[in-house]
Design a protein around this nucleic acid. Structure first.
Lengths: 133, 133
DNA sequence: GTTGACCTTGGAGTAACCTCTAAGGTTTAT
DNA sequence: ATAAACCTTAGAGGTTACTCCAAGGTCAAC
């Protein structure tokens, strides 16, 4: 049984983060001491690692909450349920990338039309371009 | 002189948005009627369009506030000031894209190891992969 | 028995960008 | 004259994922 500080250190997160996950229904300590201290088991640690790995591949905490509910009741779900969520998330990520690529190319165009020197910004092509109808 | 609703319609935004910009120091109506109605000039409309174009290339409202202060005092700045901000933003965007690309490839890998069928999630390779140390 | 490290809670604050509501005043058209 | 459309303000709410704080209780060591 580990206290919150030990778990936090093992995971490289703050104790606040762990309490935040608890408040949001992602991770509950298996037990509490009489004085109210949280005590975590090895299984709790596994759940915490699962959460962090999900975050690392781009799932939000809301997504992770769903994945956790599948995780604890695997026999109640199909592979399909998991894969569909994975695919949906990938598509979401791809859409966001496309949006950012647009930003990137617009910004690059702006950079290319500007001298970037110590000339007065009075005739700055970037400002002109942002102004243009 | 146009009222807030006309400006909002011309721009395709809500009146709330315009008031929000005012509250945050981005866009102030040139005048107010006796009863307090905002009245906008053509120049105000130009500023508003400038703001929206900046947003379209990826600048945040905080960035735009800076760009606006350059715009109103062009002789006090160099092209360099504008281009540096543009480049910084592009780099920021590229970093975010890189992060999302990592998500994308992780998610793709997960998708590829899962059958995605009506098999029980008890042996789902995606869940296993997220579990694995 | 007291110091220091650790734990508890509730609640506020952050960034980014609006969006909505309530309660009320103004303008325009008929 | 009255209804519809428009305007005002302050302030709350919503998303995401924490992070910090204050005020206080607990535990282990010396």
């Amino acid at each position: 049984m580990m206290k919150i500080g030990q778990i936090a250190q093992a995971l490289g997160v703050k104790t606040d983060t762990l309490r935040f996950y608890e408040k949001n229904g992602l991770l509950r300590a298996a037990a509490r001491s009489e004085s109210g201290y949280r005590y975590y088991t090895e299984e709790d640690l596994k759940v915490a690692k699962f959460i962090l790995r999900c975050k690392n591949v781009g799932f939000t905490l809301a997504d992770i909450k769903e994945l956790l509910s599948i995780r604890v009741d695997k026999s109640g779900f199909y592979c399909e349920d998991v894969k569909l969520r994975t695919t949906a998330k990938r598509i979401e990520v791809e859409q966001r990338i496309a949006e950012l690529e647009k930003f990137r190319s617009s910004l690059l165009s702006l950079e290319q039309i500007c001298c970037g020197g110590q000339e007065s910004a009075q005739s700055c092509s970037i400002l002109d371009a942002l102004e243009a109808q």
